[in-house]
Amino acid sequence: MKAIEVSELHKTFGRSRGARAALDGVSFSIAKGEMVALIGASGSGKSTLIRHIAGLVAADKRSGQCWVSVLGRPVQEGGRVASDVRKSRAETGVIFQQFNLVNRLSLLTNTVIGLLGRIPVWRGTLCLFNQQEKLVALRALERVGMADKAGQRASTLSGGQQQRGAIARCLVQKARVVLADEPIASLDPESARRVMETLAEINRTDEITVVVSLHQVDYAVKFCRRAIALREGSIVYDGPTEALTAEFLGELYGADSNELILTGAFDGPEDSRRPDLAVAAV
């Protein structure tokens, strides 16, 4: 069983005749435990693809082999989201560019919300989380190095801290697959590295399958083995990240490759990378 399978996905936004396809026949599969980078310029369909895998958007209605499944469970088929999509959503953690935490709730509450798909509906609806469940959330926050901020409102935290809170929510969810949509695009370089290291750590330790969309190719090369490159809604490359050199990106994207940042930030000596930074609490 594959972690993620996507077959012949088409998506066009708007109905005007000239509307360009956001996704144009995308097919791929990802094995369990992989950490895959999804790269591409803005507007290439990365976010759209992730939202389709999470079952937040339905693809174009069309016949044929057009479906998405996560961990062997269908998420959508032929442009229709599965009726039991809540089950797949409960097993899929999603991390957003803008963190999408609820500002006025505490970080702990935001984290424990990850359990909503697993506890009885009436208990989740009445906000009755027991001591043990809160402890699970607190441990997850500990793992991402945010336990000391558990009582603070999400709005009082920095972007990087909120993003690590969002990762903790995925851990509480016991997600087997984590989809991260531009998780570091709104962060400063230091926070960005900590977030990517946290993602890499949960991939390594818990064997969680991680798909992370990025436009900073540096990070893709450093943290992921495999990259899927999208351009105008189609896959133009699927293979090892080592091949992603500046020349190759220029070949794939032409002028658009300026958007794909390859700065050589991680080319320094080995000891300057400090991969253990974010996961010191483990």
Binding site: F96, L101, I113, L116, G117
Partner: peptide, 21 residues
């Protein structure tokens, strides 16, 4: 709408989306 989508992505029900999001 973004926090609501965050709640939805955890597998919450529609009523739970309203209550938490």
């Amino acid at each position: 709408p973004r926090p609501v989508e965050g709640i939805r992505a955890t597998g919450a029900t529609a009523v739970q989306e309203v209550i938490y999001g």
